[in-house]
Write a protein that binds this DNA or RNA. Sequence first.
DNA 1: CTTTAATTCAAACATGTGTTTTAATCAACT
DNA 2: AGTTGATTAAAACACATGTTTGAATTAAAG
Lengths: 238, 238
Amino acid sequence: MNRVGTQKKILDAAEKLLAHNGYHATTLRAITAEAGVNVAAVNYHFGSKEALLDNVIERRIVPLNSARMEMLESVRADALTRGRRPSVRDLMHAFVAPTISFRDSGKGARNFIALVGRTLGEPPSAVQHSFFRFMEPFIKLMLGSLKEALPELSDDLLLLRFHLSVGMLVYTIRMADESDILGQTRALSDIGNKTIGKSKGGSGVGSKAPAKRPVDTANTTEKLVDEVVNFMTAGMEA
Amino acid sequence: MNRVGTQKKILDAAEKLLAHNGYHATTLRAITAEAGVNVAAVNYHFGSKEALLDNVIERRIVPLNSARMEMLESVRADALTRGRRPSVRDLMHAFVAPTISFRDSGKGARNFIALVGRTLGEPPSAVQHSFFRFMEPFIKLMLGSLKEALPELSDDLLLLRFHLSVGMLVYTIRMADESDILGQTRALSDIGNKTIGKSKGGSGVGSKAPAKRPVDTANTTEKLVDEVVNFMTAGMEA
DNA sequence: CTTTAATTCAAACATGTGTTTTAATCAACT
DNA sequence: AGTTGATTAAAACACATGTTTGAATTAAAG
């Protein structure tokens, strides 16, 4: 049993359970049971529960932000080469695509994204401040770029619209969870019932299966990105 | 000390603390200390912690939903009278306005709205199911109305866009909390710094004050509603 | 091989948390 | 005033939870 193995086991288990239950409703004993290690291991390897959360977030946010910054820089460089302002659509795409693509890269990533959504909704904490420290460069550049793209928009309105976009993305990433509101909304609605009815008739799949997916994600991470970007771009330019 | 007084005290205190800290991080002893009553009172009057949360939500959701349904029915009646489809803008307004207006009707209401946002983000629970039971009639009618307003939109896309709008509203209502992301986003950005700079020069108000408000809410609940509705309408019609 | 360092483990620690119990107090009714 | 029911309060209950401790085990170094 080596240190890298134990730490990774704990981080993976924590990611999964924290994403599903949130920080306060997840105990160290649950995490360590999931990881198959002793509860003292958390304090030995990470120091505290909060530090564990910090580590869970940090190991993922760094590569995700690299992807985001790269894409954003690419959009800006492209616009500069053409002597034009960056397009709002391209900017929102740089904002949305890395997150949703990352989310669909695996179960762990999916949990992580859900965890970020949760963490952003918590009261201020050391972890949240840490999260913002990582996000700062991207947010600065993103807002600056949006200002260039939409120069006629007041600062307050630009910020509000960006904020609404952040909210939308944060919420969209919560789709990771089967408890998600969309599934329940669909279940409540006549529209949902009709869709289920169609699937039943057409595909022979059990009537419950399609109800879990807002979009056919088997081939449409890109499609989801497009639809979210469409919505946001229209809203930013409204 | 009569029963109505004690119950109300507990409900108000719970609303406040649950909104700020979430269910799992709020203890009954904290609530009862805030309410100035004994911890046993919770179990005496409400039966359990979870039942308390249920009561906190129920006492507010019923009137809020009445307002929403009334507004939505009005939009539909108006369209019917004119022999037209309901407009997306009017529908989104009926969705957004009661919530944001209610939020700005007082500190308690503000806390309640924040609490709803939190509750929607929790794992499935009896309270969440209860919440959906209350929301069901509105959601059904809303989706049906949107279908009428946007008949060329596929069911999946309609549902996705509604879902994104729900997410946006849920997130917007989180602005109740000073820990809110927008405040921090602004603090991080150059745009934010400029705005602060302007306020300092122009109004004589301490430089910290404007940083807490995305929009001048002293006179602009209506303005915020308009901006959110603008964004959503553009997105729904994209 | 021996020694040192790292890791794991079970138990203990210090405290917390929702719930229950029971007696005292208050309120309402006759 | 006495009786009954409602309410409050403090203490106890039954566990839970993050953290610490010290011994045992494993790994690494010389």
